[in-house]
């Protein structure tokens, strides 16, 4: 076996995509690209959340009003109910959770759990913005799909803290934690 073949084999052994996709996994490009997507998506949310905190603290008053205006959408009465009854949570929750979701993705910690939150946010943005002036497939839907991609690929394992966390004893003891990490 040549040195080159050994290197190729080593990459395949360490790359979790090796048995999932047909593209070249002989190089580190796929793993680096997933990590890059994760960090950029994280920065997007972190910036959105932290600038709200800087401007208005944990009191995002537009949040409940936005949800109250979501009438006639595919989500039915749910957003309006949330806007009317969960303002106490939404006002601090929007800036706080956007920031935390962003930090989680940037560092690669608990990425799947954070991405579920991100997907929830993006669903409300996609349906709520609802102008669809540039079509149904807009940047909000792409953001939603990005969070789905983070969940499906376990993006925190690529140059992220989840890759380390999953080697710890507590994850060995409770392996289902991998569904929240990764």
């Amino acid at each position: 076996m040549t040195t080159c073949e050994v290197r190729q084999m080593a990459y395949s052994e360490t790359n979790p995509l090796a048995n999932e996709f047909g593209f070249d996994v002989g190089g580190p490009l796929a793993a680096a690209w997933i990590a890059l997507l994760r960090v950029v998506t994280g920065w997007w949310f972190f910036h959105s959340g932290v600038t709200k905190i800087i401007e208005g603290g944990l009191n995002f008053g537009y949040g409940p009003a936005y949800l109250q205006g979501m009438t006639g959408t595919a989500l039915g009465p749910i957003p309006v109910w949330m806007g009317n009854n969960l303002a106490w949570l939404i006002k601090p929750g929007v800036p706080l959770f956007e920031t935390l979701i962003g930090l989680a993705l940037i560092t690669g910690a608990a990425v799947r759990l954070a991405s579920v939150g991100g997907a929830f946010f993006m669903t409300l943005f996609w349906v709520g913005n609802a102008g669809f002036g540039h079509g149904l497939v807009n940047s909000d839907l792409m953001g939603l799909l990005l969070f789905g991609t983070m969940i499906v690929l376990g993006a925190g394992r690529y140059f992220g803290i989840d890759g380390v966390l999953e080697t710890t004893g507590i994850v060995d003891k409770y392996p289902k934690l991998r569904y929240l990490l990764g």
Binding site: E13, T14, N15, P16, G163, P175, K176, R178, Y179, G182
Partner: peptide, 22 residues
């Protein structure tokens, strides 16, 4: 489907890192 898999199986896929000696 994800929740079902979480309930029905022991653990999510791991990255199965192994030492490969040359």
């Amino acid at each position: 489907v994800g929740l079902y898999r979480m309930a029905a199986t022991d653990a999510a896929g791991t990255d199965t890192r192994r030492e490969v000696t040359a």
